[in-house]
């Protein structure tokens, strides 16, 4: 089988992510604590969500920490930002977009000396596929008062979700513009 062009880049990326996924290291100070969310708790697809990992035994915010993420079957390798929590423990985080169906990820930290340290792999899957279509604002004319009230409530809630995702898209576009211009 011949692998050409853009597929080559894809293939190389997959292999490197896999090699990273498969290796394990150990460093007593670099213990990672992370509590994944449940599938039913995932925000609407495309909206912002954070992945946070806590390092209870260190107080540094400059460690190179990355997340190997497969989101709806597409791989990403993202750097995390460091901060200290209220108990002065290191917390690293990255903002991602909620997937349509599933998300699997693993954190990796590169100590100043020694081998990279990997967390376990976390897998989160929604119990069902959310509807991502834009809200239709048509309200049935022959509905009774109760039905009309319920329908209006449902549509206004869907519109709020549409507004949130469009705002996110516009913000994302601004961030891209800053990088490429």
């Amino acid at each position: 089988m011949i692998i050409k062009g853009r597929n080559k880049i894809f293939f190389a990326a997959i292999i490197s992510v896999l090699v990273a996924f498969s290796s394990t290291g150990f460093c007593s100070n670099l213990v990672m604590k992370h509590r994944p969310i449940k599938g039913y708790q995932m925000p609407s697809p495309g909206t912002k969500m954070k992945l946070k990992v806590l390092f209870p035994k260190i107080r540094r915010i400059d460690l190179p920490v990355k997340a190997l993420i497969v989101m709806d079957g597409k791989a990403l390798f993202l750097p995390l930002s460091g901060t200290l929590d209220e108990r002065d423990r290191s917390v690293y985080w990255v903002e991602i977009r909620a997937p349509l169906a599933d998300l699997s990820y693993r954190f990796v930290v590169y100590p100043d000396d020694g081998e990279p340290v990997y967390s376990k792999k976390y897998v989160v899957r929604r119990p069902c596929l959310p509807d991502t279509r834009l809200a239709s604002t048509e309200i049935s004319e022959d509905a009774n008062v109760v039905e009309r009230s319920e329908e209006l409530t449902r549509v206004t809630q869907r519109l709020r979700a549409d507004i949130e995702i469009y705002s996110n898209v516009i913000d994302q576009l601004k961030e891209i513009k800053e990088v490429i211009q």
């Binding site: 697809p45 495309g46 909206t47 989101m71 709806d72 597409k74 990403l76 991602i96 977009r97 997937p99 349509l100 991502t132 279509r133 834009l134 549409d162 995702i165 469009y166 996110n168 898209v169 994302q172 576009l173 961030e175 891209i176 990088v179």
Partner: peptide
């Protein structure tokens, strides 16, 4: 679809 847009722009970014 704004979901698809959000996902694709996030990957580009």
């Amino acid at each position: 679809d704004p979901y698809e847009l959000s996902e694709r722009l996030f990957r580009i970014y």
